[in-house]
Simulated assay, not measured.
Amino acid sequence: MNAIERSSQITERLVAIYPDRRPLLVFESPYQLVIAVILSAQTTDAQVNVVTPGLFARFPTPGALAGAPQREIEKIVHSTGFYRTKARNIIAAAKAIHERFGDGVPELMEDLTSIPGVGRKSANVVRGVVYGLPSIVVDTHLSRVTNRLGLVSESNPAKIEQLLRKVVPEDVQTDFSMGINLHGRYCCSARKPDCQGCVLRDLCPFDPT
C-alpha cells in the first residue's frame, strides 16, 4: 500500500468516527473565525470560546473592532494569554479586513497571510472551513499524528504541509486535517496515546513502548 492509498484509508476511517469535523471554535461569520483563530494561539479552543461571545457582542463588525481601544480589548482577551500581542493583532486584523477587503475575508492564501496575526495554519483553517478549499492545517496534533503514522518525518510546519499535499488526495485534504486534529486530541495524545483503541492501529508503525 503506497502513501496515497494509506492516507485515503486513514481519512475514510477518521470521517467515520468523527462525523462532525467542524472547528471547536464557536463563530458565526468568517470575520469571527479569523479573530477566534488568532486568539487560539497558545491556548485552548474552549478558553477562546469563553471570551469571544462578549468580544463580538461589543464589537460585532470588523470596523467596530478596528477602532477599539487596545486596553479594552486586552481586558476582554486577558484569559487567553499573551493578551497584549493578541489584542494588538486582532485590532490590526480587523482593520485590514475592514479597510483592505471591504469587511470580507479573502480566500487567497497570500491575502489571508497578509492579515496581521494570520499565518499559514490559520489561513488554511479559513480556506477549508469557509470556502471549502483543499487545506492541510498543520497544528501540533497533525504534526504529531502524521509523524507517528509515518506519513511524514518532519517537524517544520511548512514542510509537513508540502509533503502531505503530495500524498493526501486534494478532495479530502480538509477532512483529513480536521479528522487528524480530532484524533490527536481524543486518541493519539502526546503523552499517553490509546494505541489499543485506535482505529488506525493496523496502518500505524508507531511503537509507544
Rank of each mutant, 00 (worst) to 15 (best):
L182N: 11
K95W: 09
S79R: 12
G179T: 09
A96R: 15
T113W: 00
V168S: 07
S8V: 15
A96F: 05
V152F: 10
D171P: 11
S29Q: 13
V137H: 05
I180Q: 12
D103N: 13
R13G: 05
I115L: 11
N156P: 02
V125R: 07
G179F: 06
V77C: 08
T43A: 06
L149P: 03
Q9K: 14
T52P: 06
K86E: 07
G81V: 03
P69D: 02
Q42P: 08
H78E: 11
N49T: 11
G150M: 10
L65T: 02
K86S: 03
L55H: 10
I180D: 12
I160T: 04
H98N: 15
Q9F: 02
H78Y: 13
M1S: 07
D202T: 15
S8M: 14
P116A: 02
F82W: 07
R185K: 07
T44H: 13
N147F: 03
S7Q: 11
K159S: 12
K75I: 13
G117Q: 03
V34C: 00
S29D: 08
A57Y: 09
D139A: 03
P169K: 03
V105F: 08
D207I: 05
L39K: 05
V168R: 01
R71W: 04
Y131N: 01
I90R: 00
L33E: 02
E99Y: 15
Q70V: 15
A93H: 07
R148F: 00
G150W: 10
K86H: 09
P69T: 02
V48D: 05
E99A: 13
R165D: 08
V168D: 08
R6N: 09
P193N: 04
P19M: 13
N49Y: 10
V152R: 03
V48Y: 07
T140K: 09
I136W: 02
L33Y: 03
C198L: 00
G81M: 03
L33S: 12
K121N: 11
R58Q: 06
N2P: 07
L151H: 09
N49S: 05
E161Q: 05
T113F: 00
V37H: 05
S8W: 15
R144K: 08
L203T: 10
Y186I: 08
K121D: 04
S189D: 07
R148A: 00
T80S: 01
L203V: 11
L149A: 01
N156E: 14
A3T: 06
A93S: 10
Q196R: 14
V145K: 09
L149E: 01
F59H: 08
V15Y: 14
R88I: 04
R22Y: 15
E110V: 02
H98L: 13
A41V: 02
T43F: 01
D175Y: 14
H183N: 12
L112K: 03
E72I: 07
F56I: 01
A92T: 06
S122L: 13
F176L: 01
S29G: 11
Q47T: 15
P193W: 01
I38S: 01
V105C: 11
G128R: 01
V50P: 06
G128D: 02
D111E: 13
P193K: 00
N2F: 02
Y18D: 10
V50L: 14
S143W: 06
L65I: 09
S8C: 13
F176W: 07
P116I: 00
